[in-house]
Structures are given as C-alpha cells and as structure tokens.
C-alpha cells in the first residue's frame, strides 16, 4: 500500500497526472471536431474545383466515437507506451529499484503497485477523453447515451489495460526504456498482423475489441463475442502481470 502511494506521488511529481489526461482528451476530441468542420476546412484551403461536388458524408454518432477510438488506438497507444516505458526499466537503471527492494518488499507488491497506479492513470484519462468526445458528439452530431459511453469506456479500457500490461512485462524483462517501448509497439503490431491473417480462426482476439464495440453500438446489444473477447483480454493482461512478476524475480 505504501508502495502504491509512492507510485501515485511519483506520477504526480513527474506531471503524468496532468499531461496524460490532457493529451488523451486532445486526441479524442480532435477527430469529432475536424470531421464536423471538414466542409469549412476544405473551403479555407482553396475549396473544391469549379463544378465538382462532393457529398459530405453524414456521420452517425457511433461512427464518430469510433474515430476517437481509432485515434486513441494509434497515437494514444504510442503515448501510453512512451509514458510507461521507464516505470521499472528507468528505475532499475538509476538504482532506485535496489533502494526499494533492500527493504522487505515482495516483488509481487512492487510490480502490482506499478501496474495498478498506471492503470488508474490510464482509465481516468480514457474516461475523461471519451467524456469530452461524447460531449462534443452530442453537441455536433446527435445522441449517444451515457450508458453507451460507459460501455465503450469499459471495453476499450480493457484493450489499453492489455497495452499497459505488455509494457510492464517488457519493463520487468529489459532494462533499457527505449527498447521496452520498441518491443511493446512491435508486439502490438505483430498482434494486429496475426489478427488480420488468422481473423477467421481467432474470433476472440483482443484486437477485435473495437470492431465488436462498433457492433454493440450499431445493434444496441452486447454480443457474446464482445464479452468473450473482453474476458480473453482480461485473462491475457493478468497472465502478463504474473509472468512479469516471475521474470522479475528470476532476473534480479
């Protein structure tokens, strides 16, 4: 518990509590606003050639929130990975870890304190980001119920949880922060590749979460696929944390 408090304090000191939520909010409102102003933007950069007409697509609220999510899946994940790459690896490099582990602290507590404090940060940021996005969508595009927002946040948060767990796992394995970030992103890319190739076999692969979320918004009901994928993602995340505790114990 003290370790957890120390983590929270540290994340506050290095301003993560300020900039991560802000960046996530920025990322999630960028797309709704730019797609709303697309006609004006085209006009202001010179407009379309004479005579050509471009039908502006009318976006449905679910599509817009999916834009926010895809923005978060690319840039958001990148930011999260870069933000978390040094949590353990950096501390080990500078020797803080030894200072902590000299005291009677279980490796288990050390890792889980890191994991939980990061997750708190990520989930709160995600919620704030999607909340502002939801506000804009209701303002500009149309209704999206608050319950739906909560569902989206929950299921999408699981995906980010997996990303954080992956990052923690590599953190426990490797001491160089840059390499941690690289391997995490590489793994995510390989996962999406696997997902594309074996899509018909791996129906419950974590990468499918967003598409099932879209399904849920379109059909207005929770599909078993979505729930199963969510479970798989959760199990994978927990497995990664357990694995990282184990490797950390072996390595140190």
């Amino acid at each position: 518990m003290t370790l957890f408090k120390k983590e929270l304090l540290e994340n506050w000191r290095n301003k993560k509590w300020i900039w991560v939520p802000l960046v996530i909010i920025l990322l999630s409102i960028m797309d709704p606003i730019t797609s709303y102003y697309l006609p004006q933007i085209i006009d202001s950069v010179g407009g379309l050639p004479e005579g050509s007409t471009l039908e502006m697509p009318e976006f449905a609220p679910p599509e817009v929130i999916m834009m926010s999510l895809s923005q978060l899946s690319s840039l958001g994940v990148l930011v999260l990975v870069l933000m978390s790459m040094g949590t353990i690896a950096g501390e080990r490099k500078s020797g803080v870890t030894e200072l902590i582990l000299v005291k009677p602290v279980a490796y288990r507590n050390y890792i889980t304190a890191k994991w939980v404090s990061l997750l708190m940060l990520v989930w709160i940021s995600l919620f704030l980001g999607l909340l502002t996005s939801w506000y804009y969508i209701n303002l500009l595009f149309g209704d999206l119920s608050f319950v739906e927002l909560l569902q989206i946040t929950f299921f999408y948060g699981l995906w980010l949880t997996l990303v954080v767990s992956l990052s923690i796992f590599y953190n426990a394995l490797i001491k160089t922060p840059g390499l941690v970030a690289f391997l995490t992103i590489l793994t995510i890319m390989v996962m999406s590749l696997i997902n594309q190739v074996f899509n018909h076999v791996l129906e419950w692969f974590p990468n499918n979460l967003s598409s099932y979320i879209l399904d849920m918004l379109m059909t207005d009901q929770l599909s078993t696929d979505l729930i199963a994928t969510a479970c798989v993602t959760m199990i994978l995340s927990i497995a990664l944390v357990v694995a990282s505790i184990y490797t950390f114990r072996v390595k140190d």
Binding site: K15, W19, L22, I25, L26, T132, Y136, L140
Partner: peptide, 17 residues
C-alpha cells in the same frame, strides 16, 4: 467556442511543461 477547449488544453500543456 468549440475550438476554445483545444487551445486551452494546448496552453495548459505548454505552461505545465
């Protein structure tokens, strides 16, 4: 009014940094 939040967030980021 719609764009203002973006500018505010960017401003806060700059100031905090």
């Amino acid at each position: 009014g719609l764009i203002a939040p973006i500018l505010v967030i960017q401003g806060i980021l700059i100031i905090v940094a």
